[in-house]
Design a binder for these strands. Structure first.
Lengths: 254, 254
DNA sequence: CGACCCCTTGAGGCTTCTCAAAATCCGTGG
DNA sequence: CCACGGATTTTGAGAAGCCTCAAGGGGTCG
């Protein structure tokens, strides 16, 4: 799996990395043109404070299925996603994988306080990221209360999501998990102003499976069953129409 | 299930609630005598800032199996546990319950930013709590950077724990879950300076089951199997000796 | 001493997993 | 434009793990 090159550039300047596998880019004026600024941590900053962050930022563009960072690896950077879709995951020694969440435009990667990442992150689609050196980001955090507060809110929100996921994994059946998943994906698409009918799933069946604690086969059977029930139709494997949202709500367990 | 009475007292003063089911108490000098102060959010505060919180605090003493608050209920208060054990849980419409975590002395309850609690909390053992009105607590947070930072760290730590739990629920077998659980309980006991041999479980089998996404029977069979393997011995149902920690580590999956 | 609760054990069933293969999609190249 | 190969999705059959239902054991408290 391809890894990122360590970056040696100071930031904010125009910079094209010559290294063959690097996808690092930095450009001036990028933040001003940012399409998801309202969703990101940047939206909680005034111009002066924003400059503090902008001074650290590096812009990355990654292909699908590239690792952003790995579990237990030193957390040198934290990230904001500006476009694309990312999966966070944890794995057991024998390779069983659990996806703990999907991230999209506006989301923040690397909340932990520790020196190492607690999970891996990899792209599912072509992805643009803003990357900040973690330690410097933390010192900006400590000097900017609005940012600290925003980060707290982010952590609390993500915690609430994780607890929903715990309920799903601990107590829901395969079909309930799938229904819950589809409704969640629709909500996310709505929040980002993306089309919801059909709804585009950025992830493959096996990634849905790893997220829902199931196998690919069970997920596929679930899609088929939902289709047989008339709850959904499939334009293609990744384009889903939620034909009966109310039925999905019922099926989702609560 | 008995519920708390709403409190109408200003705080810091000596106060004995006359209401028959109330367990509210407030006493001066309590914080100075607090045995778990080093573990709590209080430890991140200087004397002046500590007084800001102490001015809001109310001390509660609850019996086992009392609700502290319920899912979706208005989050009027946040809490620090000073002694005892608490279970956080979420439930589905049909009553299936998932315990998302156990809390003990020093832990904080009510991290979310929202107006309503995302989960229920109930005592497992006799429990002492420090209770703060949520909105006033938040304004102290905003005026005390050290507290805000501590809260962020708490949220991040709890998030990491939740992600561990997601991995456990999504990908581990019953025996792996149980082994992981016992090791986690031992770590918690160590951190709090409690005896680890035997290890006292504050929760009943059905609560372990609701935490691990299993049934009581499966948990019980798991204990029996671990005993048969020599990994543990049981002084009683709630007093466990981890005879072969290394074996448990292996069994825990990773 | 008995009642109750919790824990444990047993038997059978059901959901999900595993293994296998067919169907579909997609990019590539002829 | 069509044929091909690989990857992904879907479907099928059988096995396994966990759940459900049921009953027995052990401790505690009135």
């Amino acid at each position: 799996m391809p890894r990122l090159e360590p970056a040696s550039s100071p930031a904010t300047e125009i910079k094209i990395q010559p290294a063959p596998h690097s996808h690092l880019q930095a450009r001036t004026g990028v933040c001003e043109a940012c399409t998801v600024r309202g969703l990101t941590i940047c939206s909680s900053l005034g111009p002066t404070d924003h400059d503090k962050l902008a001074g650290l930022v590096q812009h990355l563009h990654l292909e699908p299925h590239q690792a952003i960072f790995q579990e237990d690896e030193a957390a040198d950077y934290v990230y904001t996603i500006t476009s694309g879709c990312v999966a966070m995951s944890k794995s057991l020694a024998d390779g069983r994988r659990q996806i703990t969440g999907f991230m999209g435009p506006g989301d923040f990667l690397g909340l932990a306080v520790e020196e190492a990442h607690h999970y891996s992150a990899e792209t599912l689609t072509p992805t643009r990221l803003c990357r900040y050196p973690r330690k410097r980001f933390r010192s900006v955090m400590q000097s900017v209360p609005a940012l600290e507060q925003r980060m707290y809110a982010l952590a609390a929100d993500e915690l609430a999501l994780a607890q929903e996921q715990i309920l799903l994994l601990g107590r829901k059946t395969a079909l309930e998990r799938l229904a819950t998943f589809l409704l969640m994906m629709r909500r996310r698409a709505e929040q980002r102003g993306l089309p919801t009918n059909p709804l585009r799933l950025a992830m493959a069946r096996n990634e849905v499976a790893d997220y829902l604690g199931l196998t690919v086969e069970t997920v596929s059977r679930g899609f088929s069953k939902l289709r047989a029930m008339g709850a959904i139709t499939l334009d293609s494997a990744e384009l889903v129409r939620l034909a009966k949202p109310a039925l999905l709500e019922e099926l989702s367990g609560a």
